[in-house]
């Protein structure tokens, strides 16, 4: 069941990425795209595919996968379907740290400065949320802590915008807050990839413990789970993956809620088996949303994060209203 779900989602994701190569301001024929992928065909097509559309689609996929898997892992750890990097303030804090680096012009000092700042922000926020979760032991408190963290990051972000020295910096920061994968290059992907791979590896290595946590923390310890190590692994893995996502695309919310929520019934609600399909679906959702963003005939291109929030926020409210917070 799980394997079939993963294969189906993987195939859909590959199809989605191929579709992203076909569609755009100028639609390319499938033959032309395949030719360009093989570095043959017209030079213009090769340029469009390799320089513009492929890195952009892969960036959307990586961001969606990171957020989908981080959301699923945090939900398993905190035993709450509403836990998600966006809701818990992890994305906002990562975006704040990244913006900080941009504001002071530090991003130019090295290609890894921006991803490192985003990862540091994400880790700081996950650690804070983790500590709050340990103390509060209540889902509502936890979500409120996340909202507080989000609001504080947003306030500091607003402060930076307020003090922005010129319109270009301001525009940069707005992009970061809204979330977009426009104009991403393979170099950007390469700089975020190590953090993404490490985060995903840590989460996958610790996923068995998430199944144990279904029983509650005491019984999970009883059946042999090392609770401290489990918490640390999820916080570290989710922080790394979310940081990588934010360093690529800025703050994009709700993917981490919607993707796990949709695939959970397909894997028997097992939080361990949920990680991979959540990542695949998160990737698929953002790749498709980004195609939509590029095709919509608006004067200014819609930001991916705006579309994600427009779809995701009502879903969040719906899950919460159905009692997701009561656990």
């Amino acid at each position: 069941m799980t394997a079939r779900t993963n294969i189906a989602l993987g195939a859909l994701l590959a199809g989605g990425i191929f579709l992203a190569l076909l569609l755009g301001s100028v639609a390319l024929a499938p033959g032309a795209v395949l030719g360009a992928l093989a570095l043959g065909g017209e030079a213009g097509d090769v340029l469009v595919v390799w320089q513009i559309r492929l890195p952009r689609a892969l960036a959307a996929a990586m961001v969606g996968a990171a957020l989908g898997m981080s959301g699923a892992a945090l939900q398993g750890l905190l035993r709450n379907p509403l836990a998600e990097p966006g809701i818990l303030g992890v994305s906002a804090t990562a975006a704040l740290f990244a913006t900080f680096v941009l504001f002071f012009g530090l991003a130019g000092t090295g290609p890894l400065v921006l991803p490192l700042a985003a990862v540091a922000g994400a880790l700081a926020a996950t650690v804070l949320v983790g500590i709050a979760a340990l103390r509060a032991r209540s889902a509502v408190t936890l979500i409120l802590v996340g909202i507080g963290l989000s609001s504080f990051s947003a306030a500091l972000m607003a402060l930076l915008m307020n003090l922005a020295p010129n319109p270009f910096t301001l525009a940069d920061m707005i992009n970061w807050t809204l979330g977009t994968v426009a104009n991403r290059s393979f170099a950007d992907l390469a700089h975020a990839a190590p953090f993404f791979v490490l985060g995903v590896a840590v989460l996958l290595a610790s996923r068995r413990g998430l199944a144990a946590l279904t029983l509650g923390e005491e019984a999970a310890e009883g059946i042999g789970l090392d609770l401290r190590r489990q918490r640390l692994a999820v916080i570290l893995g989710a922080g790394l993956a979310t940081g990588a996502a934010v360093s690529l695309a800025g703050a994009i919310g709700f993917v981490g809620i919607v993707a796990p929520h949709l695939v959970r019934p397909l894997v028997g609600h097992d939080p361990a088996r949920l990680l991979v399909p959540s990542a695949l679906l998160g990737a698929l959702v953002l790749v498709l949303a980004d195609i939509g963003v590029r095709l919509l005939p608006t004067d200014a291109e819609l930001r991916l994060g705006v579309v994600a929030a427009l779809v995701g926020a009502p879903v969040f409210a719906w899950i919460a209203a159905r009692g997701g917070l009561s656990r």
Binding site: R79, N80, A211, A212, L213, T214, L215, G216, E218, A219, G222, I223, R264, G268, H269, D270, P271, R327
Partner: peptide
């Protein structure tokens, strides 16, 4: 160890709970 029963976090099937 069988602690006092607490509700499960997710509606997993019985077989999976026992397998834990």
């Amino acid at each position: 160890y069988l602690p006092q029963t607490r509700p499960l976090a997710w509606p997993v099937p019985v077989r999976d709970v026992i397998a834990l």
